[in-house]
């Protein structure tokens, strides 16, 4: 199998690339459970740092989860009907609207956050509450939901399916719930996982919008890197990994599934 030098060369390069990506990750994870990083693993393994991170930052972790779920609710409520409306009325205006919704992808999160601060910064209660960060997250994640649902809707003959349901006596809201939503489900699922993953991992917009009492998981991460000992920062990274990697895997699976339906 590896007799030809070209094949062998390819294998070595691939393994090297994997090692380049994996070794720092493993090292960082290992640092989070090492008693003293500077003395190495020989100093022993411990869960002390993880417990400490939990004590210090569990609020951030729960805030991030809560924000991600709230953000998901908002993008579902706004994004799915929006994608439906855009898919149902193709035309230049729809194209423009789609591009407009997608603008937050192109604009740096910092600029988006600054605009939000300029616009709502004077509104103290709103500025201080978690809903302010939520608004930023929804702005940033909405295009992912809309596009994901739209691409699935574009692949089915929505108009005729709806006409079929209408001829069977279904009023507009039933057609949406019985026909549009179930058939768009793979796209909604893929969009939902993307939204949750992005919301949990979002840093630069959140960093601008956060207050000392409202730190999300990545903001807390930056905070721990800046002010805590290396083991705690590493333990924090480990917790972040454990949360985000299953989400990433699920997202991959859901996207592949949606694409299978589209083809």
């Amino acid at each position: 199998m590896f007799k030809s030098p070209a094949k062998l060369f390819q294998l070595v390069i691939t393994l090297l690339a994997c090692a380049f990506l994996l070794i720092p990750t493993l090292q960082s994870a290992l640092a989070g459970v090492t008693v003293n990083y500077f003395r190495g693993v020989s100093s022993g393994l411990t869960f002390k740092w993880i417990i400490e991170v939990w004590a210090l930052y569990s609020g951030s972790i729960f805030l991030s989860i809560w924000l991600a779920l709230a953000c998901l609710m908002c993008t579902l409520i706004i994004g799915v009907p929006a994608a439906y409306a855009l898919a149902r009325n193709p035309g230049r205006l729809s194209r423009m609207l789609e591009e407009f919704i997608s603008l937050p992808l192109a604009i740096p999160g910092l600029a988006l956050a600054l605009a939000l601060l300029q616009l709502y910064g004077g509104w103290r209660e709103f500025r201080m509450s978690w809903t302010f960060i939520l608004v930023g997250h929804v702005l940033y994640t909405l295009p992912f939901m809309v596009r994901s649902v739209m691409s699935v809707l574009a692949a089915i003959d929505l108009k005729t399916l709806e006409e079929g349901a209408a001829s069977l006596g279904a009023p507009p809201h039933r057609r949406f719930l019985d026909i549009v939503v179930p058939n768009a489900l793979p796209g909604i699922l893929a969009g939902a996982l993307t939204v949750v993953t992005l919301s949990i991992g979002e840093f630069n917009l959140t960093w601008m919008l956060h207050t000392p009492f409202l730190k999300t998981l990545p903001v807390g991460l930056a905070d721990s890197y800046a002010s805590m000992r290396l083991e705690i920062a590493s333990a924090y990274t480990l917790i972040f990994f454990v949360m985000i990697v299953p989400l990433l895997l699920a997202m991959q699976w859901a996207t592949a599934r949606a694409q299978r339906i589209m083809s």
Partner: peptide, 28 residues
Amino acid sequence: VEKRKVGMVFQSYALFPNMSVRGNIGYG
């Protein structure tokens, strides 16, 4: 349409892919 009480068979059939045969027939 939904108030006309007409049954329609479409050229592409427009069967609901999210339902079984029974589900499709029972929808109306």
